[in-house]
């Protein structure tokens, strides 16, 4: 019973506004206003540490400069690749885990408890732990790999461009795998048993069953999970910053890291805000996809 509302009132009996007002007021002060400020800053030249250069309104100049710089597009591509790599890793491993856990096996609760551990680890703690794991001289990763004869000499994981890129993505994957696995598991468990059993009678192999029955049924779940994960990964600051600060050179500088560096390293508030707004627009697109994916299944 949703009551249609005819005229504006604040009565707690008839109107939703009474209930919405606190959150709306709060959010307009704490979210809408800051966004407006950031948008405004993106039209200015404003470097806090350089009063000699002055603070001026420059219109769209920052955007023009940004879109014309090859560096920005390189960062943009890097962000897309990093996000893609991490989300792909999370999804694949997450799906594998979910698929294994969906089987009727013993010790399920035990496995589920283990799965929680990376999830509950605060991001900053995870970054610190991984930083130590990756350490070139004393890190456990080098030790294990040399013991297994997969590596002949110490490797400085965060000291090479490609390996740092992959290593930061792996840390991000690590944090995200449990969530993905749980989402997929929920999805798998919602597939009616009869559907799978009927496939058994037809003599479908495990792989065929996965490809022809499970994956199509799981499509909405997969879409929701990967989009959500892409949004979080795209936003990830807490992993990259403590691990590499965007280095070596700029191998792990994503848009979010770049925005932070501009705003709080160089105090170039104008350019920092411009990048923030670009990120904002990209996020809006992602959110639209997520929203659509959710809406498709149910009328909200």
């Amino acid at each position: 019973m949703l009551k249609p509302l005819r005229r504006f009132t604040l009565s707690p009996e008839k109107s939703p506004f009474f209930y919405l007002l606190p959150v709306l007021l709060f959010m307009s002060v704490m979210v809408a206003y800051p966004i407006a400020r950031v948008l405004y800053f993106s039209f200015t030249q404003n470097i806090l540490t350089r009063p000699d250069l002055g603070v001026t309104f420059v219109g769209l100049q920052n955007y023009v400069t940004l879109f014309q710089s090859a560096e920005f597009w390189a960062t943009f591509t890097r962000t897309a690749l990093w996000t893609g790599l991490s989300v792909a890793g999370k999804s694949l491993i997450g799906f594998l885990l979910a698929w294994l856990l969906a089987k009727e096996i013993a010790w399920k609760r035990f496995y589920m408890a283990l799965l929680l551990i990376p999830w509950v680890t605060p991001m900053v703690v995870a970054a610190i732990a991984w930083r130590w794991v990756y350490d070139g001289e004393f890190g456990m990763l080098n030790w294990v790999l040399t013991e297994l004869h997969m590596l002949s000499d110490h490797y400085v994981w965060l000291g090479h461009k490609l390996s740092a890129f992959v290593a930061t993505a792996v840390t991000d994957m690590w944090l995200g795998i449990p969530f993905m696995a749980m989402l997929f598991l929920a999805g798998l468990q919602s597939i009616p048993r009869e559907v799978l059993e009927s496939a058994d009678i037809d003599g479908a192999s495990s792989f065929q069953r996965l490809r022809l029955i499970i994956l199509p049924l799981m499509k909405p779940v997969i879409l929701v999970a990967t989009t959500l994960s892409a949004i979080w990964t795209f936003n990830s600051f807490g992993v990259i910053w403590p691990l590499t600060k965007g280095g070596p050179v700029n191998a792990t500088t994503t848009l979010v890291v770049e925005a932070y560096q501009r705003s709080f390293g160089a105090f170039d508030i104008g350019m920092g805000s411009t990048i923030a707004i670009v990120i904002f627009v990209i996020l809006m697109l992602f959110t639209l996809v997520y929203y659509r994916a959710l809406m498709r299944r149910e009328e909200l």
């Binding site: 939703p16 919405l20 959010m27 002060v29 704490m30 979210v31 206003y33 800051p34 966004i35 407006a36 400020r37 950031v38 800053f41 949004i231 936003n235 990830s236 600051f237 979010v256 925005a259 932070y260 705003s263 709080f264 508030i269 920092g272 805000s273 923030a276 707004i277 990120i279 904002f280 996020l283 809006m284 992602f286 959110t287 997520y290 929203y291 909200l300």
Partner: peptide
């Protein structure tokens, strides 16, 4: 109502990095 729901969803996607300059001022 629907726009509001969408707005809520959208806002939750923000990384603090985007807002932090504005938040700092507030």
């Amino acid at each position: 109502r629907r726009s509001l729901l969408f707005l809520m969803l959208m806002t939750q996607m923000f990384s603090p990095v985007i807002l932090i300059v504005g938040l700092y001022q507030i």
